[in-house]
């Protein structure tokens, strides 16, 4: 394993921000894995750290294939994660909305450019990503529909689902989108959590990446094959929205089946305790996403269901 500082930025009073890469094997730049870009992505940092730990053992056992190399970048934004702030501390901008970056531009454009310059040559890009809506997901691989995406390749992770998303304008400045447009295949791995640790889930993501690297002939890994992934378009999922605001008491669980008409949650009056709304399943299927904070607005997506085919 080699450690390399990919980008460094000074501040007037803080220690430098250093983006570190951990490189395994030698030769072709085969795959790169990026972890926490936002300051609340603790689960993503943890998953990367466990991946580094596993890759050390794999490399020690001589199981990185000859002429192949893998780089892991556990954290892009130490300035935010160390002070528990989601975006960049000075200007509150999101580095994951700055790609491919600009090395003569604003600070976060420079950080994005500094990272992207060093990772864009890797043939495969994998990001442990987080979502902006608070909630829990079934672990899945997400790809943008750019015309370059290869769904069959995404199935090699062995996660339950491969979700294809039609990019919105703001997606065009994410790492995933630019990786795919500039060089090759990119995948975002979503685990259930972001700012809390779910160790089982993080380890599932680590195994998924190792499975994938094994199937791509980059290293040897003998884990179980995981799931036979189902490919689904994001807009095919059925959203279940709240009609009222209040305290959210959820019953339907992620990755479990629900039947049409089944009770999924209560919305409770925050002062008088009565049930304001019984949230029922509009169709039968599997719960893909579930709201997980104790309060909700009205007109908010509480669940997403993959309808039974």
């Amino acid at each position: 394993m080699r450690k390399k500082i990919l980008y460094e930025l000074s501040s007037i009073y803080r220690d430098n921000l250093r983006i570190k890469g951990y490189i395994f094997g030698k030769g072709e730049k085969s795959a790169c894995v990026v972890g926490a870009i936002r300051g609340n992505e603790v689960q993503q940092l943890y998953a990367c750290a466990q991946l580094v730990k596993a890759l050390k053992e794999i490399e020690k056992a001589g199981k990185i294939k000859e002429g192949k190399s893998v780089m892991v970048v556990p954290c892009v934004n130490t300035y935010s994660i160390n002070i528990n702030k989601r975006f960049y501390p000075i200007d509150n901008t999101d580095i994951n909305r700055m790609f491919p970056g600009y090395n003569q531009g604003e600070t976060t454009q420079r950080i994005a450019a500094g990272l992207f310059d060093t990772i864009q040559d890797y043939k495969i890009g994998i990001q442990f990503a987080s979502f902006y809506m608070p909630g829990e997901f079934i672990p899945h691989v997400r790809m943008m529909r750019t015309g370059y995406e290869k769904k069959e390749l995404a199935k090699e992770f062995g996660l339950p689902y491969v979700v294809i998303r039609d990019p919105k304008p703001y997606d065009t400045t994410t790492l995933n989108y630019n990786w795919q447009i500039w060089n090759g295949q990119s995948f975002s791995i979503y685990t259930s959590e972001t700012d809390k640790l779910d160790i089982d889930n993080a380890m599932q993501a680590v195994r998924a990446v190792l499975n994938f690297l094994d199937k791509e002939g980059i290293l040897e890994y003998q884990g179980h094959d995981g799931y036979i992934s189902r490919v689904i378009n994001e807009n095919e999922m059925v959203p279940v929205k709240s009609k009222n605001a209040g305290i959210f008491e959820g019953f339907a669980q992620v990755n479990k089946s629900v039947q049409k008409g089944e009770l999924m949650a209560y919305i409770i009056d925050p002062y008088e305790g009565n049930i304001k709304e019984r949230v029922m399943a509009p169709c039968s299927g599997t719960v893909f996403f579930a709201h997980d904070t104790p309060m909700t607005y009205n007109n908010t997506v509480l669940f997403k269901i993959i309808e039974e085919s």
Partner: peptide, 10 residues
């Protein structure tokens, strides 16, 4: 208009 959780409307 959106109802907020505790006794407030946006």
């Amino acid at each position: 208009e959106v109802e907020l959780p505790v006794d407030e409307k946006l």
